[in-house]
Amino acid sequence: MEQKRVLIAGGAGFLGSHLCDRFIKEGFHVIAMDNLLTGNIKNIEHLFPLPNFEYYNHDVTKFVHVPGKLDYILNFASPASPIDYLKMPIQTLKVGSLGTHNLLGLAKEKKARILVASTSEVYGDPTVHPQTEEYWGNVNPVGPRGVYDEAKRFLESITMAYHNFHGVETRIVRIFNTYGPRMRLNDGRALPAFMSQALNGQDLTVFGDGLQTRSFCYVDDLVEGIYRLLLSDYHLPVNIGNPQEITLNQFAEEIIALTGTKQKIVYHPLPKDDPKQRQPDITKARTLLGWEPKVSRQEGLKITYEYFKKALLSNS
């Protein structure tokens, strides 16, 4: 049987690199594409010796060409943490629009199925809880987070246009908070921020009153959901995330307990348009894909903590 070929844009990033691992394991020929704006070559260097792995250093906002056939394309090329997209607002908008347009054009040319990575941020600061795929969101297009939120909303719109107008086989995943090895320590999101502060002997910074909620999914569970969605027959958006909701105060306490540190929690003002609640309704993923998260937060946090400890040691 002929080997299937998959292009993973953003392949050197946190999620992209785990997807590279998964598709290699499933017997695919994997082409990772990344301009390393926020990705890290170390995340995929273990794959370089493999004959069924290639890496292209390329910016998808420029014309994308890949020789040979392609069966699947996964678009994970985008800054994804507030620190990154607030620092690089125009690149974030360009990769969501021009980058997605280029990859959809490639999918059309190659007759490949494309899965695009959207986000729970399309729901903005939600007025519906938990968030179902039918909820249209509450987004401030001119606020600081708008560059990311609207880039992802455009990504979904143009993907549906290519599906409806050009007949391209498309899949849309809406990713909720995900964590695990290969996250960057200076990522700016709650988990790496809390862990790096605890490991460095600093107090844990919570923004606002800490009563806002998040739902954390371990990366292996997320990758499983994405893999099942890609191979499914469903073309509308699907939430993939862990529905177990927790306040940021509770989460900070869990990190302090896990790391065995004596830090306290300090409070800073809440950033503009920061969502108060975040919890996926995963009914669609359960019914259409037979998917739900398997890794408990306790188990996933232990693995992630060990990774961060090693990362800190190697950086010191």
Rank of each mutant, 00 (worst) to 15 (best):
K4G: 08
R5Y: 04
A12W: 00
G13Y: 04
S17W: 04
F23N: 00
E26G: 09
L36C: 05
K42Y: 01
P49L: 14
V60H: 03
D71G: 02
Y72G: 00
I73P: 01
S78T: 10
T92E: 03
T100Q: 07
G105R: 11
G105M: 12
K108H: 12
I114R: 02
V116Y: 03
A117T: 01
V122P: 08
V122H: 09
G137M: 06
P141M: 14
D149P: 00
K152W: 10
F154Y: 13
E156T: 02
I158C: 03
H163K: 11
V168W: 08
E169I: 06
E169S: 12
R171A: 07
N177K: 15
N186F: 13
D187N: 08
A193V: 13
S196Q: 14
Q197G: 06
G201D: 04
G201K: 07
V206S: 04
V206Q: 00
G208V: 08
G210A: 06
C217Y: 03
L229C: 05
L231P: 01
S232T: 05
L236P: 00
I240G: 00
I246Y: 08
N249F: 09
A252F: 09
K264D: 06
P269C: 12
K272G: 06
K276N: 12
Q279L: 13
L288F: 15
S296W: 04
Q298F: 14
G300N: 01
Y307E: 03
K310Y: 12
A311L: 15
L313S: 15
S314Y: 11
